[in-house]
């Protein structure tokens, strides 16, 4: 049975969503202290604005929106992107059959950390939040064409960094990681 809005309280929100909010924050910030600070900010803001949450089912999206807004506000001074990052870099899409290897979570974070903030944000929305490019455009209030190009560019760049890191490590004993994907 769905919980009525009157039963929404901050304790329930923390219990149900603190893990997902922290994980989202970690992928965006790339550091444990920053992720904890951001998570704390999200729930403090939620406590102050609890009356604005009208549907319990949308609580997680509401918390994510608070998180994104805070992240953007903090990082806004670093934008816009340098011109070099605007080149579409598709050559790293592997053309051969890909083996079913897992991607190391820390290696993924290291690659994310090398991306501009706006690229990291659309990637986390796409992969972690599972948003479509239309939803990303709506949430970030950006033109759809802008989001499409930014997302495509960010995905290609992410792969490029991941593959390069694996390729660099290929001279070392192989761990069966992403290097094999780029052959």
């Amino acid at each position: 049975m769905a919980e009525s809005p009157s039963r929404v309280n901050i304790t329930n929100l923390v219990a149900d969503h603190h893990r997902a909010v922290y994980q989202y924050a970690y992928r965006l910030t790339g550091s444990v202290p920053e992720a904890e600070d951001l998570t704390q900010h999200v729930f403090l803001a939620a406590q102050r604005n609890l009356g604005k949450l009208h549907k319990l089912e949308s609580a997680r999206q509401w918390l994510y929106a608070i998180l994104r807004n805070r992240f953007l506000k903090e990082k806004q001074k670093h934008w816009p992107l340098p011109a070099a990052d605007l080149q579409l870099d598709m050559e790293d899409v592997p053309d051969t059959q890909l083996p079913e290897t897992a991607i190391d979570r820390e290696q993924l974070q290291a690659a994310l950390n090398r991306l501009p903030d706006d690229s990291r944000l659309v990637l986390v929305m796409f992969y972690f939040e599972e948003s479509s490019y239309r939803e990303i455009a709506e949430q970030l209030q950006l033109p759809i064409g802008t989001v499409m190009s930014r997302l495509a560019r960010a995905k290609a760049r992410l792969r490029s960094i991941l593959f390069r890191a694996e390729a660099d490590g290929r001279a070392q004993p192989s761990n069966g990681g992403l290097a094999s994907l780029a052959k």
């Binding site: 304790t11 923390v14 893990r19 922290y22 998570t39 704390q40 592997p94 890909l98 079913e100 992410l158």
Partner: peptide, 29 residues
């Protein structure tokens, strides 16, 4: 590409959460 995306998405969600995080959040709130 879809297969690779699925693996990146799975890795993206693999983030260890500090065990005492909920308690510290509640204390701060």
């Amino acid at each position: 590409l879809q297969g690779l995306d699925a693996r990146i998405a799975a890795a993206m969600r693999e983030v260890p959460v500090p065990g005492d995080l909920a308690g510290r959040l509640m204390a701060r709130l």
